[in-house]
């Protein structure tokens, strides 16, 4: 019974990952992609945790723990990267595509 629930949760998380991946590929703004990556990170933590229980070996939790701790380093880094620039939109603007 619980096995099925774990499996269903895994599938649901995978579906969310797919949607986030779509958002990361489609954009359109740089912040959208950053948000998608952030969301993907959280969902990875959940997937690894649930997967450990699905296979009956919850010793994968260390990996989830490290993601929970370090994942937001990426977000901070990107924000710092944008901070000095007035127009981060130039990194990802549909208008730029049309110019070519």
């Amino acid at each position: 019974m619980l096995e099925a629930i774990y499996g269903a949760s895994c599938l649901a998380i995978l579906a969310v990952m797919g949607l986030a991946l779509l958002r990361a590929v489609l954009g359109p703004s740089a912040f959208d992609r950053l948000m998608a990556v952030n969301m993907f990170g959280t969902k990875t933590v959940l997937l690894i945790s649930v997967f450990g229980f699905l296979t009956g070996r919850p010793d994968f939790l260390d990996i989830a723990l490290i993601y929970a701790l370090v994942n937001f380093l990426g977000t901070i880094a990107v924000l710092r990267f944008f901070e000095g620039r007035k127009t981060p939109a130039c990194y990802d603007e549909p208008a730029e595509e049309q110019k070519e």
Partner: peptide, 8 residues
């Protein structure tokens, strides 16, 4: 989670 994914 799925709701959030669809929203995103």
């Amino acid at each position: 989670g799925i709701t959030g994914g669809i929203g995103v």
